[in-house]
Design a protein around this nucleic acid. Structure first.
Length: 866
RNA sequence: GCCCGGGUGGCGGAAUAGGUAGACGCAGCGGACUUAAAAUCCGCCGGCCAAUGCGGCCGUGCCGGUUCGAUUCCGGCCCCGGGCACCA
């Protein structure tokens, strides 16, 4: 490899050569070995969109750095890679370019695999698979049947976005301002039968399990806790005033029951539908609700509207009639689809009541402090009851209890634990997904496909006549037989793609097994030691994967309770957006590469225009790089120009991994310069011939300082890699060391071994980040082994000993001096040295010293008063 | 709207357990080398005052609090980003 140490650093030459050597040796093939400590490092697998984007580069570089570091620590490392290959974009490509989704996807995989290889990631490619491989998805079909047997699968209706023109179901993403993205037609809500997985059966375990996930970021655990949303409340039945039945509501605030002044129910609630039958006005209102979005974010921001239904319920304690309203913001999918409205103590109810002149009745007052003015807004805190008759004076929990007990005695209520979490709707009315293995008999029987019938293979040769799934018009696929031999119709819906991504990490452990979903190898590798991926997956994917893993455990397939021991949520890679708006308000986004910006004298951006036509474009917000905002930066150009190591170094240096990274390609140049200077420095050093070992005792002070710096850098970088996961500061520390070596212009014989040690250290510490150049430099420094087999360096405590340290002296908290004291100086010595400083004397003269705070090794603060 | 996160020089960021704000790098400016360019090397680089190098005042989104001391902790607000169940 030393022949590569030419005068010029040429990544285009050395990187492919180093990669070839790794490939020929099978350097990253992982094998189960009970005698060695394993480390399973996993990055979220990509959707094969066609080209790698910066988010991928960042994600996979982080994973690769951790993998290579753990390998140098002596662990048996598994780092696999695969493809989350089903999904909507392939269908869009099929419609737009007349390419079958399968062919489009597989060709994308080919090119993206090439890009990943070019970046030098240490994957065990023998374990690669795509989720669209029947070898893979057959096992989730098989597992679906197991879940069905256990009663964890059921069929129910659910609302979808229906495009009346294209006659197809739309994803939320395909609904723009309430209209279909292709047809432009107003989207309708439509209820259709669909398949669900009972994730709510695991709600408690999913919630409690979070307490033991010490390696997960608090933010993610909090988001999951809130998403699961366990609450203790009361299910109350309000009798309809006409005696025809009850209206059921769930509340977490039974203490406010006496403040309920009206009821609100969802537009799909059977009582609302029934009431509308005789009323044109209600009919129109429900109709307008049918054109509402299915997305919660959209619903929560829309105008709150409602109509009285013309009937009432009786208050279970006072007997007062409470009018029942239908409101567009009540969701049928939450609880019972009905709420008791307490405008005095719920802000949304308060606003609704004011809008519609409904009574507001305060029943809770602050326990202490001033009275509140209910005309200015709802009082939503817990407090003591007022205006509640026998319950007056009770605090939240006593009132909860007393009111619950009173209603329970009447048989009007039950205490209930409820979750915000809803069951997982896994049906998708799409073609490019895993077929749901279910058969429908002529007599209405519904059965899962028998194991012998698996896999139910998705036909890959398809004609795209319209925009809806071609499976619906394929008799060869649809026509089937029940296990009894009777004719049957096959389900044409496919699984949500989160289904595939919920267990792929287990399959990586044993992907060649043709007779079982997983085998004993899964228990060697699992759980994943560190899982790296975007923060945008904090809830959905990571919650589904946890659920699926527990379901697999309960089916006896795996032993671990949780799939991911440690989670590193990578921040998004963001970039400014540029767009123009057409007459219809539709935005056309332009890639930043097609745009040039104008800056003022202070280099602030003031305007932007499209290069092709010179006309201005609107500068949008800085957002996550995405296809829809067309603000992606193609990494390929940078790889071609600077090589993989520079891109890897830059992405790791630009920000800590969990922080948003605002991409700027000018700074890449600096990373390239650093590698070049390390290259030159090593060449210059190596030209002087072989270096002998370091003799620590005989060193002059400046060389001792360089050695100390070398070992302090080892300690710092090791801590950054293993505990802090902060690669940017690790790189900065190595840069400082390299700068120190370069500036220590000592040509003496004693300096050579110290410099050798410093350079070897820098190269070893950088090896996980810039493995190609590190590999070449390592051999140039006289090693015959490959650096990927080298051991991570250990700091030498003796080399790090300091005789003197700097401490700060403050007067009244303001820095007034920096002084040198012996490393072992006691409080009194520090104090004396501080008071002897001229500037400190200046600020303490003629003042009264009230106290002196000494933090050993850090600072002295002299507190004085005039 | 709800849940989560973030806000520090012209820019990316550092300050790890409440103890020197601005490490490291980018951009910029000045200089060296060169016929020239590139590359490389050296110096400066938050604002203001002082200008003889010492040094001083202000400064971490805004307002307030706790503390000898707050970018860090607490309360309130503003702005930006992510998620909200059919994008992945």
């Amino acid at each position: 490899m030393q022949e590569f140490l030419k005068e010029r650093y040429e990544p285009a030459v050395i990187e492919p050569a180093v990669q070839r050597a790794w490939r020929e040796r099978g350097a990253f093939k992982a094998t189960e070995d009970e005698g060695r400590e394993k480390f399973y490092c996993l990055s979220m697998f990509p959707y094969p969109s066609g080209r790698l984007h910066m988010g991928h580069v960042r994600n996979y570089t982080i994973g690769d750095v951790i993998s290579r570091y753990q390998r140098m620590q002596g662990k048996n490392v598994l780092q696999p890679m695969g493809w989350d290959a089903f999904g909507l974009p392939a269908e869009n490509a099929a419609i737009e370019n007349d390419v079958p989704p399968a062919a489009w996807t597989r060709s994308n995989i080919e090119s993206m695999r090439g890009q990943l290889e070019r970046l030098g990631f240490a994957y065990d490619w023998d374990r690669e698979f795509a989720t669209c491989d029947p070898d893979y998805y057959r096992w989730e079909q098989w597992f679906f049947a197991r879940l069905y047997e256990k009663g964890l699968v059921y069929r129910d209706t659910a609302v979808v976005n229906w495009d009346p023109v294209d006659q197809t179901v739309l994803a939320n993403e395909q609904v723009i301002d309430g209209c279909g993205w292709r047809s432009g037609a107003p989207v309708e809500r439509r209820e259709i039968p669909q398949w669900f997985l009972k994730i709510t059966a695991y709600a408690d375990e999913l919630l409690e399990g979070l307490d033991r996930l010490d390696g997960w970021p608090e933010a993610v655990k909090t988001m999951q806790r809130n998403w699961i949303g366990r609450s203790e409340g009361l299910l109350i039945r309000f009798p309809l005033s006409d005696g025809s039945g009850n209206l059921e509501v769930y509340t977490t605030r039974p203490d406010t029951l006496l403040g309920a002044t009206y009821m609100a129910i969802a537009p799909e609630h059977p009582l609302a539908v029934a009431a509308a039958a005789g009323s044109k006005k209600l009919e129109t209102f429900l109709d307008s609700c049918r054109r509402q979005s299915t997305s919660e974010g959209v619903l929560a921001r829309m105008e709150k509207r409602g109509e009285p239904l013309g009937f009432s319920v009786d208050h279970p304690l006072t007997g007062d009639p409470l009018p029942v309203w239908v409101a567009n913001f009540i969701l049928m999918a939450y609880g019972t689809g009905a709420v008791m409205s307490v405008p005095a103590h719920d802000q949304r109810d308060w606003e609704f009541a004011n809008e519609h002149r409904l009574p507001i009745r305060q029943v809770v007052a602050p326990a202490d402090g001033p009275a509140i003015d209910i005309d200015r807004g709802a009082f939503t805190d817990h407090g003591v009851l007022v205006n509640s008759g026998a319950f007056d004076g009770l605090d939240f929990s006593s009132a909860f209890d007393a009111i619950a007990t009173a209603l329970e005695r009447q048989g009007r209520a039950e205490r209930r634990t409820q979750y915000r979490l809803r069951d997982w709707l896994v049906s998708r009315q799409r073609y490019w997904g895993c077929p749901i293995p279910v058969l429908y008999g002529d007599g209405g029987e519904v059965v899962p496909e028998a194991d012998e019938g698996l896999p139910v293979i998705l036909p890959e040769e398809v004609e795209w006549a319209g925009v809806s799934s071609p499976l619906r018009s394929m008799p060869d696929f649809i026509d089937a037989r029940m296990p009894t031999g009777a004719p049957a119709r096959r389900e044409t819906d496919t699984f949500d793609t989160f289904f595939e991504s919920s267990w792929y990490f287990s399959r990586f452990c044993c992907r060649d097994n043709e007779t079982a979903m997983v085998d004993e190898r899964v228990d060697y590798w699992m759980p994943v030691d560190i899982y790296i991926g975007g923060i945008e997956h904090a809830v959905l994917h990571l919650l589904y994967a946890r659920f699926f893993h527990k379901a697999m455990r309960d089916a006896g397939l795996v032993v671990s309770d949780e799939p991911f021991t440690r989670l590193l949520t990578q921040g998004m890679v963001c970039k400014e957006t540029y767009y123009r708006e057409n007459e219809r308000g539709r935005r056309q986004y332009y890639n930043p590469a097609e745009v040039e910006v104008e800056t003022d004298a202070r280099r602030r951006v003031i305007a932007a225009r499209l290069i092709s036509d010179g006309q201005p474009v609107t500068i949008g917000p800085i957002e996550k790089m995405s296809k829809s905002k067309n603000n992606g930066v193609d990494p390929q150009g940078l790889i071609d120009r600077y090589g993989a190591d520079t891109i890897r170094l830059y992405t790791m240096f630009a920000a800590p991994p969990d922080q948003t990274l605002e991409w700027s390609d000018t700074a890449v140049e600096g990373a390239f310069r650093f590698i070049k200077s390390l290259w030159r420095l090593t060449r210059k050093h190596v030209a002087g011939g072989h270096a002998s070992a370091v003799f620590p005792c005989a060193l002059p002070e400046d060389l001792k300082a360089l050695r100390r710096h070398t070992h302090e850098t080892i300690a710092k970088v090791t801590d950054d890699f293993s505990r802090r996961y902060k690669f940017n500061t690790a790189i900065a520390a190595v840069m400082e060391l390299v700068n120190h070596i370069a500036r220590a212009d000592d040509t003496s014989e004693a300096a050579r071994p110290v410099r050798q040690e410093g350079l070897e250290t820098a190269v070893l510490l950088l090896a996980p980040i810039v493995p190609h150049v590190a590999s070449v430099l390592w051999q140039a420094l006289g090693h015959t082994d490959d650096i990927i087999e080298a051991a991570w360096p250990r700091p030498d405590e003796d080399a790090m000993v300091r005789d003197e340290i700097e401490i700060v002296v403050q007067v009244n908290g303001k820095k007034r001096a920096i002084i040198q004291v012996p490393a072992d100086a006691g409080k009194a010595d520090c104090e004396a040295a501080a008071m002897a400083d001229d500037n400190v004397k200046r600020f303490t003269a003629e003042k009264t010293i009230r106290k002196i705070i000494v933090v050993p090794g850090k600072l002295v603060n002299v507190v004085v008063s005039a």
